[in-house]
Design a protein around this nucleic acid. Structure first.
Lengths: 115, 115
DNA sequence: TGATATACATCAGTATCTAATGTATAATTA
DNA sequence: TAATTATACATTAGATACTGATGTATATCA
């Protein structure tokens, strides 16, 4: 039984930016960190992760640099840019407004007929 | 300046079921009710609304009946089925878990390195 | 030796949404 | 009275975003 969200819903970018908002990191570690912080409730697949990183870099919200490892494959480390910091704030705020709006509909009082 | 969410993110079905969980209603009124309850933060377009209603009916979560009006166009009134009530509960719970998980990532404590 | 973990990446197929378009009636406003 | 807005249904082209599979390569662990 799969009880893990696949985090579509357009939140992929927000989550990545949030992780990079605390410290630079590379793709694989970002995905693991999202899993950790959400207690494994959120799992980001590579097919969502890497295209999202590409898009964020294309828009100038993050920048990247290869880092060779003494052992194991090289890592592409991403850093939040100044522009990205503004975007992170914007997306956080948008998420909060969105989730509050959804809650007010699904938790919502019956009342007030639209009919 | 558009400061309205377009409510993609897979929440369309949940919102419709939630509205129908309080009382039977028709498409147009459902969309208006979602707008009302969210203080216009959420706006559901017809291109999202009608296909979603169709899908929900195909899955047996809602049932429909035409209602002729004394004045104005006829309405297709949808009612939540018993199966739909279970689905509503499931989707509400899934939404709550999802939104909490997102919050724990974006509000999240830095700490605990994954590196 | 085979499985698992790390670390990147692409891609076919699917799902879902936006914005536009269309039909039709009724009410309001200029 | 003509034009606009509201009600009420519906479809569709195009865009976006995600899933699941596949692929390459190194390192570790059993």
């Amino acid at each position: 039984m799969k009880e893990q969200h696949e985090l579509k819903k357009g939140s992929t970018q927000t989550l990545i930016l949030a992780v990079l908002g605390d410290a630079p990191s590379h793709g694989y570690a970002i995905a693991r960190e999202i899993e950790r912080r959400s207690a494994s409730a959120l799992k980001m697949g590579e097919g969502a992760l890497y295209p999202a990183l590409r898009a964020l870099e294309n828009e100038g919200f993050i920048s990247s640099a290869w880092e060779l490892q003494l052992s194991g494959p090289a890592r592409k480390v991403y850093t939040l840019t100044e522009k990205g910091q503004g975007e992170l704030a914007r997306q956080k705020s948008a998420w909060q407004k969105f989730s509050e709006a959804v809650n007010s509909v699904i938790g919502g009082a019956p009342h007030g007929q639209t009919n």
